[in-house]
Structure formats: C-alpha cells, structure tokens
Nucleic acid binder design. Sequence first.
DNA 1: TGGGTGACGACGC
DNA 2: AGCGTCGCCACCC
Length: 258
Amino acid sequence: MTERSNRCIEEYRTQTRRTAAPDFAAKCLDRLGLADRYLAIESAIGPVYVAWNPVGVSAVRQASDSEAFERWFRKRFARRALPATGEAPIVESVRRALAGESVPELAIDLRDCTPFEADVLRKAREIGRGHARPYAWLAREINRPRAVRAVGSALANNPVPLLIPCHRVVRSDYSSGEYVFGSDVKRKLLEREGLDLPAITDLVRHGYHYLGQPDDGCFCLPTCGNVIHDEHLVRFHSVDEAIAQGLEPCTTCRPMAA
DNA sequence: TGGGTGACGACGC
DNA sequence: AGCGTCGCCACCC
C-alpha cells in the first residue's frame, strides 16, 4: 500500500463521515420529498423554529438564528433540516395551533420517541387550554403510576413543545415545575391560558385538593379548566369527602384512579 | 451491563 | 416553609 493510497483512504473516510455522507443522504431524502423542512413561526413566546416532514411536525425550538436551529436539529435527530422553500399545507395548521387554537388533526412525528415517551406525549396532548395536570396524574393515566419521574424525563424530551402542551403538566403541589423554555415562561403561559396557579397552590397548601360544583354534581382537580370559580364552589380535602357529598368525579380531569 | 441521571413525590426536620 | 433524603422508573452510555 503506497503512502498516496493511504492518504486517499484517510481523506475518503474523513469526508464520508463528517460531510459528504450526510449531505448526500439529505439530498436523496430531499429528492424523494422526505426531508425535514423548517420555518420560523410566531408563537406565544415569540418566534420559534418549526420543522416538519411528510409524517408530521418533527420539532419546535427557540433558537437565535437558523444556523443554531440547524445545529440543534442535527444533533438531536442525527439528520439535517433544510430551510422551507414554499409554504407547505401543514404550516397553516401549525400557525393556528401556535396561535392557541386546538388543532387535534395536526400530525406530529413521534417516530424518534420510545413507546413510553409517545404514551406520555399523547396523553399530554389531551390536556386542553386552561387546564393543567400533575405529573403523577399523567403517570396514573398511562397506567404507570410509579413512573412519575420518568414522565418528567419524557416531557423534558418533548420534540414539539407548545404543540404538545407539556407546560400544562405541573407538580402535585401545583407549583409549576421545570420547562424547556424556563419555569417562569411556563408560569406565564399558564397564566395567559387563564389558570391562576398561585391561588391554587395556596388552596392546596391549606389541604384543599379537590373542588366541587354541587350544581353540576361533580368534583374536579383544582386545575381543571371546567371549574367555575364562583360562590358555588365547594372545597374538599379528599376524594372521599367529595363523594360523601354525593358528587361524581369529573370525566374531564378524572380526579381519582379508575 | 449496570450504574448514573433526571421537568417527581412523600416524608422528615 | 423550605430544604435534604430517599425511592421510584425509563433511558443512556
């Protein structure tokens, strides 16, 4: 083997590994119309970069510029995202969702997630605007009542924050808990959605974990968006107490284990 | 492969 | 009240 051929082989390996192969792969995917494309879109927390592919939205992230977003995307997903050229049909749905509208038909690409993570994220997606649920509640709902901590990790991994509203999952004492964009942003988002978290933490500090509305005969978690905070509101320390008053568990916030 | 690592929660001060 | 500790469980080298 000559020194020259050794140099060639080394160069080939370097190029292939570091640049040529990923570019080539990206070009092929693009030809097939399968590449991830991205665009900056306005949201409640300012512009965010949103990426999508034929399966659905693959990523939502804040970034200082498109280069930073591309770097993050490549590191996270081990593939490239290309700037969008035209306006894809999915973008209009994303705009509506980021404007606060519920868009349940919006496709989201969760192929990169583990089955457990996908379960967590699908459940989180069911939490409507104006509602919030504890991490422990989410763990219980997906039949993994002891995986509370793992639920937190799965939400921390949410590839599409805001679209899957992981900011609506809070601690059991109704303090906000952590968030990709910071816990103060999380609190601000919840406040903007009409939730008075400070008032609720106060309520819970005094031992009132459930709220009931005798008029419609059911009791709720204090962060259930269906609760009307008026003079009819009754406070309960426990599920048993609410049931003793003849109230049924709310079918939206499901305040007790099935 | 097994031990380290978290967007948690209960409990003890 | 707010902190430290420990158990928990999925995931990652």
